[in-house]
Computed example of a mutant assay.
Amino acid sequence: MVMIIELSAEETKRRFGVAIPIRNFPYQLNHREENNVKLVMEYIGIAYSPEENKGANSVKHLCDRGNTFEAVSTFPKAHTAEEYAEEHAKVMASLTDLHIMRFDIVSAKEDFVTIRYTATGTHRGAPHNGIEATGKRAEWTAAGNFIIDEHTGKIKHWWKDWDKMRMWKQLGWVKPPDAEFL
């Protein structure tokens, strides 16, 4: 039986370098799993930082050569973890205060790391798909599943799922505004 604990922002910062609380975390990880979580947290810390994410080169050192990224419904132009950082930088240009509020769950088993998080942001920046800043705030969830290359210790593959429609509706990015998605 796996014991689940909660980590405060301070504990997560000390252990993984990112000051974001984790609500559900396995009590024990082996050394390899601990390093893999640290790698994913470093990537997320950069990719979600308006100051640090300057596009693909910001995260290149964390990504395996030939890595892949899949999120067809949310980032169809991104096919690598570096391309995701590039596309995400564009979202952050619109949501200048975008940040992860908490990790709802972080787990690791061998070379597999999974995360689910809750994020927030306000459209105060650049236009998004031609929509000028709405001043509206949104809160949404997303999840990522990562495979870390056992030889290089870098991100080999990443699948991302994102509650994009919830976010877009709250921000006023869905046209018409009363559209429903089933």
Rank of each mutant, 00 (worst) to 15 (best):
Val2Met: 08
Val2His: 07
Met3Trp: 06
Ile4Met: 15
Ile4Gln: 08
Ile5Ser: 12
Glu6Asn: 07
Glu11Ser: 02
Thr12Trp: 04
Lys13Val: 05
Lys13Asn: 14
Lys13Ala: 14
Arg14Glu: 15
Arg14Gln: 14
Arg14Pro: 00
Arg15Gly: 04
Phe16Gly: 08
Ala19Ile: 01
Ala19Val: 06
Ala19Arg: 05
Ile22Met: 11
Arg23Met: 13
Asn24Ala: 13
Phe25Thr: 01
Tyr27Gln: 14
Leu29His: 08
Arg32Phe: 04
Asn35His: 11
Asn35Tyr: 02
Val37Glu: 07
Met41Ile: 00
Met41Gly: 03
Glu42Gly: 05
Tyr43Thr: 06
Ile44Cys: 03
Ile44Phe: 02
Gly45Pro: 10
Ser49Gln: 09
Ser49Pro: 05
Ser49Trp: 08
Glu52Val: 03
Gly55Met: 07
Gly55Thr: 06
Asn57Thr: 06
Asn57Cys: 10
Val59Ser: 01
Cys63Lys: 00
Gly66Ser: 07
Thr68His: 00
Val72Asn: 14
Val72His: 12
Ser73Tyr: 02
Pro76Asn: 12
Glu82Arg: 07
Glu83Trp: 01
Tyr84Gly: 00
Ala85Ile: 10
Ala85Phe: 05
Ala85Trp: 09
Ala85Asp: 04
Met92Lys: 00
Leu98Ala: 04
Met101Thr: 10
Ile105Val: 13
Lys109Glu: 15
Glu110Cys: 13
Asp111His: 11
Asp111Ile: 04
Arg116Thr: 13
Thr118Gly: 07
Thr120Cys: 14
Thr120Ser: 15
Thr120Gly: 10
Gly121Leu: 13
His123Arg: 01
Arg124Ile: 15
Arg124Asn: 14
Ala126Val: 11
Ala126Asp: 05
Ala126Lys: 14
Pro127Tyr: 13
Asn129Tyr: 10
Asn129Pro: 00
Ala133Asp: 11
Ala133Asn: 09
Gly135Trp: 09
Arg137Leu: 11
Ala138Gln: 04
Phe146Ala: 03
Ile147Val: 12
Thr152Lys: 11
Gly153Leu: 07
Lys154Trp: 07
Ile155Trp: 01
His157Lys: 12
His157Pro: 12
His157Arg: 11
Trp159Asp: 01
Trp159Thr: 00
Lys160Trp: 06
Lys160Phe: 15
Asp163Thr: 01
Asp163Asn: 08
Met165Leu: 11
Arg166Phe: 06
Arg166Gly: 13
Met167Lys: 12
Trp168Lys: 08
Lys169Thr: 12
Leu171Ala: 02
Ala179Arg: 15
Glu180Gly: 06
Glu180Asp: 14
Glu180Ser: 09
